[in-house]
Nucleic acid binder design. Structure first.
Length: 512
RNA sequence: CGGGCUGUGGCUCAGCUUGGUAGAGCGCUGCGUUCGGGACGCAGAGGUCGUGGGUUCAAAUCCCACCAGCCCGACCA
């Protein structure tokens, strides 16, 4: 024991070095770790449990909006990728390529790809699946009666990133990609919008992340898309992070892949397609949005475990009774429903001393920790600590009362996290009308070691790529989206960078 | 993929300048005392010093190459 009361579980703190804090949280919370393969991560059970919960809830929303899951190949012939010009250009730089199908022992005794087993056409490991799914849809679609096709797939993709960060940017990551084909433009645009709303709902209600929804500027658009919609969240260093995207692909991919059909009028027409996705990046987003200097804080709706029971067994003679009581309490809690499902409860029976266990769970971000000791058995009480409050704040409750109100308590944590994130975002979202103020907003006081600064700026823009480019070069700030909400856009005005007219305000920020 | 820095038990690092055959703290294992705010004592286990080559009687230490990681840029869910 060397600690003062002010000691934090994570060093450095968020204020000291946010990027390093994040990495330490991922490690301390046992969410993931770097693997021996450059750029790839091992997602550990606690981190994967989080992803599974996000997955399950999102999957239900996809099904509810008429989609079905399917699975398409990991390997994509290079010729498929070449079909859509903008698309290849966007992804070519980060593709892993499979060139051989067999290994052999070389002269140096080491394994090497067998020269005799070179593929006639190399295969790309999917960076995304528009092309191969498009080629498949082309076979499936002949008539307007075959439309719409509403399919989603859960899978991994590979984008050969050079600067990996766990969950936020890795060479391989897990995601879902929805791919739909429609008879009309209007239908496809509606789908694009609908799925963005699904993402916004997921973010707000399940992940407790307030998000701004809007459209990407041409410069930030998905390669090959006509329109890219997105939701943008703010994390605690006030940077933006894209939490989901939905693309209206027009007829670009239909033309590239030959998805055509005979219309009601008998004419041959190209289908209108969409694609939309969210990735394990959401896990990183959650951590950066809600965590504190003691580690992760998980929203109850996606936490792998809602309640952990920590039996306090100071004396051998009371140990069995306490452990038995912990199991009874756990079972009573499991009968409680939170958003339709029984609570996930864990009894931590490990024979570890003192506060060690307690701190492990704090770092992991479990919503509720319950201490149960010999004195509680006598009094019928429990000691409850909420992860969204200070680690010292322990509430002694009658066990019955705790069980009765546990679902409400979890919801209160969920709501509290959202409110906290919303307050932080609103506090650091500013309408800015002058170039000088814009620059000041995004310039740290300490250039050597930049402090947390800036935020979201709602500023007019003349619509030119030149301004985007200039601002990005000067400040590393980009347009995160053109907000759909008129209250944010605020109608016409003047671009502070050029003095030219602007249709509406757009959302600027530094981003992940 | 360009510029800089760094590779030594599981982790963080000392040792390298001035070559002489490897250390600390944490963690881990065992036993005991502890346990409602991150415990303590004693006894242990654990290292091809990133990889390959070179110089030397002798290399963690000097030289070369390669690989990997971190930071800063360009790119991105």
């Amino acid at each position: 024991m060397n600690g003062s009361a002010a000691k934090t579980a994570i060093t450095p703190t968020r204020a000291e070095n946010f990027a390093e804090w994040y990495q330490q949280v991922v490690r301390a919370a046992e969410l993931a770790e770097p693997s021996d393969v450059r750029g790839c991560m091992v997602i550990k059970p606690w981190g994967f449990g989080l992803w599974e919960n996000i997955q399950r809830q999102m999957d239900a929303m996809f099904k509810a909006t008429g989609h079905r899951n399917a699975y398409f190949p990991l390997f994509i012939p290079i010729s498929y990728l070449e079909k859509e010009a903008a698309h290849v250009e966007g992804f070519a730089k980060e593709c892993a390529v499979v060139t051989h199908h067999r290994l052999e022992v070389g002269a140096d005794g080491k394994m090497r790809p067998a020269p005799s087993a070179e593929l006639t056409e190399p295969l790309v490991i999917r960076p995304t699946s528009e092309t191969i799914i498009g080629a498949t849809y082309a076979k499936w679609v002949q008539s307007y009666r075959d439309l719409p096709i509403l399919i989603n797939q859960w899978c991994n993709v590979v984008r050969w990133e050079m600067r990996p960060r766990l969950f936020l940017r890795t060479a391989e990551f897990l995601w879902q990609e929805g791919h739909t084909a429609h008879e009309t433009e209007a239908e496809a645009r509606e789908e694009t919008q609908r799925m963005l709303e699904v993402y916004a709902t997921l973010a707000r209600e399940h992940l407790a992340l307030p998000v701004y929804a809007g459209e990407k500027s041409a410069g930030e658009r998905f390669p090959g898309a006509v329109q890219t919609l997105c939701i943008e969240a703010m994390v605690q260093d006030r940077k933006a992070i894209q939490a989901g995207t939905s693309h209206f692909l027009g007829q670009n991919f239909a033309k590239a892949s030959g998805i055509k059909f005979q219309s009601r009028a008998g004419a041959e027409e190209f289908a209108w397609t969409t694609s939309w996705g969210v990735s394990t990046r959401l896990v990183g987003t959650l951590l950066m949005a809600h965590g504190d200097d003691d580690g992760a804080i998980l929203p109850p709706r996606v936490a792998p475990t809602h309640v952990v029971i920590l039996p306090i067994t100071p004396k051998a003679e009371t140990r069995d009774a306490v452990l038995a009581a912990a199991d009874v309490l756990a079972n009573r809690l499991r009968e409680q429903k939170f958003h339709g499902a029984g609570l996930e409860v864990e009894v931590d029976r490990r024979d570890l001393g003192g506060g060690v266990k307690n701190w492990e769970w704090i770092k992991k971000g479990v919503p509720l920790r319950v201490e149960l000791g010999p004195r509680d058995l006598e009094k019928g009480s429990v000691a409850v600590a909420r992860r969204d409050r200070g680690v010292k704040e322990k509430e002694f409750l009658a066990a019955d009362a705790f069980v009765a109100q546990v679902a409400a308590t979890l919801q209160s944590i969920q709501d509290g996290l959202f409110a906290r994130a919303l307050a932080q975002r609103d506090e650091h979202t500013r309408r800015i009308d002058s170039r000088e103020e814009f620059h000041a907003f995004f310039t740290p006081k300490n250039a050597e070691k930049p402090e947390v600064h800036g935020g979201f700026a709602l500023t007019h823009w003349d619509g030119s790529a030149a301004v985007e480019e200039q601002v990005k070069n000067d400040l590393k700030v980009t347009i995160r989206c053109i907000p759909a909400d008129a209250a944010l856009g605020g109608g016409p005005g003047v671009c502070p960078f050029t003095g030219k007219p602007s249709a509406q305000r757009v959302l600027w920020a530094k981003s992940y």
